[in-house]
Design a protein around this nucleic acid. Structure first.
Lengths: 217, 217
DNA sequence: AGAATAAGTGGACCGTGGTCCGTTTAGGTG
DNA sequence: CACCTAAACGGACCACGGTCCACTTATTCT
């Protein structure tokens, strides 16, 4: 679980909502000092451990700090804020999914046609997110923050690329946003859990969408 | 400026359903006691006034209570939490938009074809939300909360209805979610403000989407 | 009218996220 | 090795959202 994460971002206060962050491209690739790196994994481990014993909502920054044997200030210095910590936690698990659609076997990975890969993408994400929904939802404090998460960019670019390969009509980037919006954790959770909609219905709708939007003119 | 807010409101909601969440504060129109109703408008007015003097992020519950001349507990009793207050504030302004697409003049309102109304809907919402984005984003603390807001249900049902009228293929409700997802405030703000995308590009993409998804089989 | 009761009120109180700043330490340099 | 600097640390501290509960008041009932 030694993966990188944004060290922090300036926390704005005066104006109003978040400014246009320079969009931390790759996470914190800046090599940390030895003790800092050690504490970082200590913290992530502690958080992960605590998380398996209580809901994400009950995870307090102080308890994580204590469990890791460091001061509270250290947690904030490293992860910026609570959401930052949770996102760092998610980032690690996300990598497995990324590997699957970037370089895994068809139909998700290369080797299948663009259309096939698009069709396979929805269900794959749907299932992946279902397992992580508690963490993901807990990490969404600021609605704009999502768009700063590198993992999302990767998905957008991936889908946009597949759409181009499939010769879809329209704006690939915006179509990608549309498709990803449909399998967004919050929406999916609302529909399946709160509204009791079967997952199959969502998957079917996904295929319909892909067929409609990804079709060649 | 300080707009006096309707004390309360029950909007006729077609297809009212689920209720497994701790009752959204906005939909408790069940007649309040006289003093409570008075304090409610006092609070909304105070909040609105304070908001025009500072960003939504700086609005504290205590300051609203003080400005309205009531205790802090009263604010929470009435609106549940901070998001509830902000949503109540938005709800009032939202009604104008609702009137426009429910009973206003074509092409947004009845009188135009379903397809025309769908095409007109996107730009209308896009503009409406642009004005309110600060408040809207500030009210989005809990990602699932959005789906409990009555205004969203109204939009969903409206779009789904238009899609049916237009004989669109696929699942009308899920298509409605897809379309609305594309014009979600957070996404639009991200694309236009943080990414500098011109609004026209979004509108164009909207028309493309509607054409693609709303088309008769 | 007065009694009964449900609804509303306010502010002390608490927990947690987030900040601040004086202190400590890693690790490079001569 | 001694020294120096930037990075990291920790925990006191603060502000704000949210809860609680003893008290007040509107409304209904007889």
């Amino acid at each position: 679980m030694t993966d990188s994460v944004a060290p922090t971002s300036k926390l704005p206060e005066p104006g109003e909502e978040r400014r246009n962050l320079p969009l931390a491209p790759t996470d914190e690739p800046h090599q940390l000092r030895a003790d800092a790196a050690r504490n970082r994994t200590l913290l992530l481990d502690a958080a992960s451990r605590l998380l398996s014993g209580c809901g994400a909502a009950d995870l307090t920054m102080e308890s994580v700090a204590a469990a890791a044997g460091v001061g509270k200030g250290t947690v904030f210095r490293r992860f910026g804020d609570r959401a930052g910590l949770l996102i760092a936690l998610l980032d690690h698990r996300e990598k497995q999914l990324q590997a699957a659609f970037l370089s895994g076997p068809p139909p998700l990975g290369p080797g299948a046609s663009a259309a096939e890969r698009l069709h396979a993408f929805g269900p794959a994400v749907l299932r992946h997110e279902r397992d992580q929904h508690a963490l993901i939802l807990a990490s969404r404090t600021d609605p704009l923050r999502n768009y700063a998460v590198p993992a999302l960019h990767l998905r957008i670019n991936h889908i946009a690329m597949l759409l181009r390969q499939a010769n879809a009509t329209g704006d690939p980037e915006l179509l990608a946003h549309t498709l990803l919006g449909f399998i967004d954790t919050a929406l999916v959770h609302h529909l399946t859990v709160e509204r009791g909609m079967p997952l199959e219905r969502l998957e079917e709708a996904w295929h319909h969408l892909v067929t409609r939007l990804g079709a060649t003119a």
